[in-house]
Amino acid sequence: MRLAIVSQSARIYAQLARREGFEVLAIDAFADIDTVQAAHQTWQLPALAGRLTAEDAHILFEKLDAWQPEVLIIGSGFEADIACYQNLHQRYALAGNAPSVLEQVKNPYWLNSYCEAHGVLTPTVRSQAPQQGQWLYKLAGQSGGAHVSDWDESLIVSPEGYWQAFQPGLAVGALFVANQRSVTLLGVHALKQRQGDYTYAGATRLHDARLTAAMQKTLEALVPDAGLVGINSLDTIWHDGQLHVLEINPRLSASMRLYAELPLIQAHLAGTQGAVSPALQANTQYASHCILYARQAIETEDMNFPNWLEDRPDGGSVTAGQPLCSLYAQGDSTNEVQQVLQDKKTQLEKLWGTYVCERIEFNIH
């Protein structure tokens, strides 16, 4: 089957699809070494890191038309561009949520009311700047966490902005597959964030029976009536034995890296088509993936990127605040995984030198 994947970063989806026997076109913002190796064809569209112009969308359609995919799947990059997503949905066999569902679940006021109506805890949201208390300022329809800030009156507000009450606790995500009105929890993981902000920086698989049970109960309350299909993810806060829902991400998720031993692309397609899903047996090992970010601009032309790194850049420069590459480790305990990550960091410090590594945020903890 000819499968096209469009996402800010398509690497993990391309690798999964290739392993599961699909013929893959990958279109993303980076076209890194691993994506090029995994896909049969790769095309870089840097605008996917932001928002597509009409010209970008036209070129994207031309590339997809030339490939003639039997199925199109979408990762991040379209939550804030429903019109483009609608065009993709109408033009191709897009295996994913309907545009109306995407628009609905990314509306913070709808989600807040929906959670309350289904007995699920969620922080208060409001459209006007609060006068007291601790709040987050967010932009509706975004992804990846870079749009989230601790609110203070010096911030410049946007028409897409809203305020969400700060909820203390552990940031926890869930990967799940929705199939008609049923839901299967694939895994629960702690969410890593960049130092000093809320940008997604990786995730660590968790094996907490109480948390898993609470997540299952939350998904069973929310998913059947939401119209979701296929693989999606949920962002929550775990505090004092209770889950507080922050956002639903109605698309493929970067956290799929933690569950890559499962036939996730087949499960996604089955969920979107209402078909029987392949067997999805949970992995009992611990795992963590970490995104390395550039603190300052880094020239990568002369850097050696070992093949155990992921999302390796294919030359050029990486600007401050942008992802450089990723690390992954798995093992039989949290300590074992953490030690593997630390060992890899030490190897990179020897390989790249102190000067370069001081410009990199490793996010291994």
Results as ranks from 00 to 15, higher is better:
M1N: 11
A4V: 02
R18Q: 14
E20I: 07
L25N: 05
L25Q: 11
I27R: 06
I27V: 15
D32V: 01
Q44D: 05
P46M: 09
D56Q: 02
F61H: 14
E62R: 15
E62Q: 13
K63C: 05
A66T: 10
E70M: 09
I74R: 03
S76D: 07
D81N: 08
Y85S: 05
Q86W: 03
Y92V: 02
K106E: 03
N107Q: 12
P108V: 06
P108M: 07
S113T: 13
E116Y: 10
Q128S: 15
L139T: 12
L139H: 08
L139P: 01
S143Y: 01
A146I: 05
W151H: 09
D152Y: 09
G161H: 04
W163T: 04
A165N: 08
P168R: 11
L170I: 14
N179Y: 00
D208S: 06
A209M: 08
A209L: 12
Q216L: 14
K217D: 13
T218S: 07
V229H: 05
T236A: 10
H239R: 11
L243G: 00
L243M: 09
L252E: 05
M256C: 12
E261K: 08
L269K: 01
L269V: 13
G274C: 03
A275R: 13
S277P: 04
H289F: 15
L292Y: 02
Y293W: 10
A297Q: 14
E301R: 13
C325P: 00
L327W: 10
L327Q: 03
A329S: 08
A329Q: 03
V337F: 12
Q339W: 10
Q342Y: 14
K344V: 04
E349V: 01
K350V: 08
Y355V: 10
R359Y: 03
I360D: 01
